[in-house]
Simulated scan of single mutants.
Amino acid sequence: MRIAGFEFAEGARFQPGVIKDAKSVGEHIEMLRARCKGELTPDDILEDAKHDNSPLHSFFEWSDTEAARQYRLQQARGLIRAVVAVYVSDDKPAVRQKAYVHIAETGAPHYRESGHAMSQAKTRQIVLQRAWKELQAWRKRYADLVEFSELFEVVDACEGELKRIERR
């Protein structure tokens, strides 16, 4: 099988100012992969992208100050996602759950305590929609693996159930 063309993945996010030419980016990365005897690394990409004339250059933040800030923000997001809360009640065993969920409200994305977010109709819907999109993206990524075909049938059944719930 051969590559017929290149596209960016659905939902791919890039920094402002990126030249979104998937064809030239894909072809350039393929050239680098061939030059690296088929074993491409992120270091290979970064080394090439340092050059102003590389089609990969605009995908990176070259200000060390801003890059450091962006990296620290990514670390902060990872830290928030890593925290698990242990909920207890008198009549049930303890339950572990992500402490915070991301609420991707337009213009004001933020994190909220999971229980609070899921108890409010608007934020619950935002969380469920994001989870569903992530599940669909995972399904697309692994659609060709027959070992997951039964799981995909369950996902299809869930989709019908979710649509039924939304109509209420």
Rank of each mutant, 00 (worst) to 15 (best):
K92P: 00
W132G: 04
A157P: 02
G17V: 05
M1T: 13
A34E: 14
Q120I: 14
G78K: 07
P55N: 06
D156W: 02
E66P: 00
K140V: 04
R139V: 02
A9N: 07
S119V: 04
G38V: 01
E66Q: 13
F6P: 01
K20C: 08
L40I: 11
V83P: 01
E7C: 06
F14R: 03
V146Y: 03
L151E: 04
W138M: 07
V84F: 09
E150F: 08
K98A: 15
E39L: 10
E10L: 15
Q125Y: 11
A137Y: 01
E7V: 09
M118T: 06
A85G: 12
D91L: 10
L135G: 03
L145A: 09
M31L: 10
R164A: 12
V83G: 00
R167P: 00
H116F: 12
R13P: 00
I165S: 02
P109Y: 04
E105Q: 13
S119D: 09
V146R: 08
E105M: 08
H57Y: 06
S24A: 13
R124F: 12
R69I: 09
K20N: 06
C158F: 15
N53D: 14
A22C: 03
Y71P: 00
D21V: 04
A137K: 08
Q75M: 15
S89D: 11
H57A: 05
V155M: 10
F59L: 15
A76S: 10
